[in-house]
Design a protein around this nucleic acid. Structure first.
Lengths: 349, 349
DNA sequence: GTGAAAGCGCTAACAA
DNA sequence: TTGTTAGCGCTTTCAC
């Protein structure tokens, strides 16, 4: 395929009448090589167009400087931003990235993990699929001590690290905010409760109701796949309820926005008849009318921290075994939920 | 790092009392090996937990089954979708992906290409940065006959393949549509004219004006970085113009949506006072009020075709040297531009 | 149809 | 401070 033979350390060594190992060492900035020699070797190497052969090197060193990433979907704002963060950190540390998508399917996730394992990644960054029911597919990695870090959608697994936000608190705050705005019959539109993000937000919702002496009603909980369509369906369901709910806390912005659009289409006024709170602070939340109250979610930071943690784990398997890092979230109050001007410290930007 | 020694073909060979070369051949389904032997070898190999070592194999075979991707940004709907398409095809063909972002900067693009080259990717998929002024940084690849395929933001370069849509025609249609809606003073909000996507859309705009005997006015052309902020700024600029323009064709949805939001904030009615057409058909275009007329862009297909073309080029460097593949786009007419009910064959969905 | 043997290019233990 | 040497695990030519 490639036309001409590659320049190797042997060629460089021969040109300088020294040994290949000296060249190898010089090129890695080994401390025991004289500065002058290094300089000379570097000069000649680059002049000859030398390029390190990673495969020979990997073969010897038994690692690949490659990190695998398994995410549910690439084309969501959150994920794309998180991956941008991951990429920044890994690139900066000389690691390549192999990214694969589970398409929200447990089955496909199993195959992604196995493929990545077979590519001998040095570590794995994972956000779980919607319906992943157990973690057995990660065992092959643990058996070989390949570190795994989970982010956002996480689960307990051999004491692996997790990077998350406090979804319980966020759900609690979102629901409390609705209650403060006068809502008493609040729907929760959530996702698969297998996933921490959804179960915790739901738990926060329930706790907020309890703390405000509002009775929990299972009929007001709608568990869906959190798509736009799910938002539309839920809106229609809500419109048939009597008496009609006066608030809705949705576990992502996509479906929250879809409910708003659907409500408005039916002539229901937001937030006066129904107040809506979403989750994620996607760009779309600032475009929908009325602007969506939502929880801001540090996607980029989550990605960066997950990558940094994984790399330090790879470099030093004894490194601090923090089990969970929790990042800060913020409830951003906008017009979809704000019924009256309150003395609210949070901005409506 | 990894705890236990790996199982190699030697171990498998020993267990079966045959030679390593036979094992190697059997595992690759070499035709000259007896079926029975193959079956036996496969069974024992998988039983022993054998895993092919890609690095040893790459080292011998001189290719890596890895494809590099250089894109301006990951976190746009278009790019994320295109990459999803790329990933699907490459994974299906046994190729890994190394994805890197130029952050819209020529300088960073140069470094991405060089890094990927040093990782010995078998081929490269590229969408150019905003301000890339020449293609010299790709020369290292051409010198070694490493194939490169450009998609979306492309440029002529050693007869490389390009996967695009007909941006000229799309720009022409978008502008013609505005004219049909009665617009006579139409602003064009475009991006860096170094990039085909922007220069072609602009060319389409001019041609549509010419064909409808509307004089071209340079003052109505605004060249920006196409961000949301650029949309806001442009809206403000337009509001100061006298007489005020009555239409705007924007080369992406992000800035188109921002102008709409800004116009509405100022009480300007859309589409009656100003009609707006965007580009890309991002999800946000269906959320903004009024819904944005835009050009639908087959992101996923572009990614898939780019990947497939690259792979066929890698596998067979003599393969058909199509220089450009043009995919179909569609103008989607929605309320941001539709002033009167016309007998329009295009749907408003 | 199968085996022997020579590397691919690099690194690291050991020697000097 | 530098050199020698023995592989890492796989593929492939040549021989039988």
């Amino acid at each position: 395929m490639k036309s001409s033979r590659e320049v190797t350390i042997y060629d460089v060594a021969k040109a300088l009448n020294i040994s290949p190992s000296t060249v190898s060492r010089a090129l890695k900035d080994h401390p025991q090589i004289k500065k002058e020699t290094k300089k000379k070797i570097r000069a000649v190497a680059s002049e000859m167009g030398y390029q390190r052969n990673k495969f020979a090197s990997n073969l010897r060193q038994k690692h690949t400087y490659t990190i695998g990433v398994v995410v549910p979907k690439l084309n969501s704002f959150f994920m794309a931003t998180a991956i941008a963060g991951i990429e920044k950190i890994t690139a900066h540390n000389g690691y390549g990235l192999i990214i694969s998508q589970s398409q929200e399917s447990w089955r496909k996730e199993i195959s992604c993990v196995s493929t990545l394992f077979n590519s001998r990644v040095d570590g794995l960054l994972v956000s779980l699929a919607f319906d992943t029911k157990n973690m057995n597919h990660f065992d092959i990695l643990f058996k070989k001590d390949i570190p795994v870090v989970f982010f956002d959608r996480v689960a307990d697994c051999h004491g692996c690290m997790s990077i998350v936000i406090d979804n319980f608190k966020a759900g609690y705050e979102a629901t409390t905010h609705l209650i403060e705005q006068g809502c008493r019959k609040i729907v929760h539109l959530g996702g698969n409760l297998l996933r921490n993000v959804y179960s915790e937000r739901f738990r926060g919702y329930k706790q907020a109701l309890a703390d405000n002496k509002i009775e929990f009603d299972q009929d007001l909980v709608v568990i869906t796949d959190m798509s736009g369509q799910a938002g539309i369906d839920t809106a229609q369901k809500i419109m048939k309820m009597k008496p009609r709910p006066d608030g809705i806390f949705t576990a992502n912005d996509t479906s929250a926005v879809a409910t708003i659009v659907e409500f408005e289409k039916a002539g229901i006024s937001i937030p006066d008849e129904i107040a809506v709170v979403g989750f994620n602070n996607e760009p779309i939340s600032q475009v929908v009318k009325p602007n969506l109250t939502t929880v801001d979610y540090p996607a980029r930071d989550i990605g960066e921290i997950a990558a940094a943690s994984l790399i330090s784990k790879i470099k030093d398997s004894e490194s601090a075994n923090l089990s969970t890092i929790v990042l800060k979230h913020t409830l951003i109050v906008r017009n979809s939920s704000q019924r009256a001007k309150l003395n609210n410290s949070k901005s409506a930007r």
